Simulated scan of single mutants.
Amino acid sequence: MTDRPETGTTGTTDRAGATGAPDATGTLDEALERLHASGPERGGWLSNHAPMAVEALVRHGRASAVHRWLDQYEDRLEELPPPHAPVTADTWREALGDPARITDWTLFFARELEERPWRGVLAEWWPRLLPGIAAGATHPVIRTGHAVRTLLASPEGGGVSGPRRTELAHALGYWAARHQPLPPLTALPAAPTAAAALDSVPPVPDQDGGIRHRLAQLTALPAWGAAPDPDTAKELLGELVTAATHRYATHGYGEPVMLVHAATAPNAVLRALPALPRELWAPSLAAAWAASAAVTAAYTPVEAAPYEKVPLTPEEVFARAAEHGDDHTIKFTDTALDVGGPLALAAALRSVELNPPAS
């Protein structure tokens, strides 16, 4: 990329009214540049969470901890795999969903984002990628949501830094390479609210094995989230993120790592909406519901567990997550702070309790 990195951003305001800290230090761009020699996975499947976690740390005023956190995470990083053959406007369909083409896809999106405004690239590819939202255990869409948030937070009229555009290329490339739609699903009776819909999701029969094995067993999900207009779609998407975040407080113990994605995946979609054409908002809601419900079906326990509400401020809760250091915990707490309120903060603290801390 030829752009000179910007050293500062404007703050952004989330749904709870909290303002993300502007990155006057340039730390986020430095961290992203450091990470872009690494691939999106390790061990052939496990996701690289570092770009998402460092974005959340910087947003919540923990820029000074970022490079130290990356030093601890470094042994989980692998180099980008070698490219095979270029993805082009004529050949992309044959490369879609081929994880061996991760680097080919990343290079393709890097070229696209060098030549065109990032919003136009996102608008073109979002509906193509959306059917594969659950691919990679939803990590590609989550990484995309974090990348879009950094781009939306770039200063007006100041241009977008090269590392932030490159991060979007990595996120979209990962999504395209891991793209895998869910199996055909039957619609079960509709639920009146997002919380009720998540409560009525039937668990998959075989609760052993990895997420691909579990998602392959899906046959039906409750109908929820019909949106007659874009504004309703956005409102319902916020309701879904809230419901999934709250549900973690009582059900996260079933699989503490995987169940964070029932909330962070739809929140990634919600974060992307302002950058997307309004006609894409309703299909985005439908895909986000499918992803959240699918993760719920794959991992949620049958019974709720008690939890405690702790009288801490959002800043104190995020500080605990940052000190805990686990990447999933940091990202889930970031989403919980978007939701706001005592129950969301209690859910974030449950993730601190349930997930193993970073070594």
Rank of each mutant, 00 (worst) to 15 (best):
L259N: 10
D229M: 04
A100W: 07
A265Q: 07
A190V: 05
E124Y: 06
P274T: 10
D14S: 10
L188K: 04
S47R: 04
W105N: 01
L35Q: 14
R116H: 14
M1H: 04
P266H: 00
T242Y: 02
W118P: 01
G8H: 12
T296R: 07
L77V: 10
G254A: 13
P192R: 11
R350K: 12
H324T: 06
M258I: 10
V87E: 06
L285D: 01
A216C: 05
P222R: 12
K309F: 07
T144V: 15
E316C: 04
P163F: 00
A346P: 06
L237M: 08
L35H: 08
D29R: 01
H324G: 02
W126P: 05
R34T: 15
L240Q: 03
E115T: 04
G225E: 02
E235K: 11
W118E: 01
E94F: 11
A134M: 11
Q207A: 14
Y307N: 13
E6K: 08
A286P: 02
M1T: 03
L107F: 02
E316S: 04
E315H: 09
L122V: 05
H60A: 06
R62K: 12
A176D: 00
Q180G: 07
A171K: 04
A243Y: 05
D326C: 03
P266E: 01
P40H: 02
H170A: 15
Q72E: 12
S351G: 06
T333W: 01
G11D: 14
A63Q: 08
A291L: 06
P40F: 00
T250R: 12
H261P: 05
L168C: 08
A347W: 09
L130C: 07
P51L: 06
K234V: 09
D199H: 13
H170R: 12
W224N: 04
R128F: 05
A286K: 14
P131N: 10
T296L: 10
K331E: 14
E353C: 09
G238W: 09
E167Y: 14
G157Q: 10
L152F: 00
T242S: 15
A21Y: 11
G173V: 05
A291I: 04
M258C: 12
G325H: 02
L96P: 08
L218I: 05
L221W: 01
G43N: 13
P181Q: 10
T166A: 15
H328Q: 10
A346N: 06
N355C: 14
R116K: 09
T9C: 12
P306T: 08
N267Y: 13
F318C: 05
P342H: 00
L259T: 11
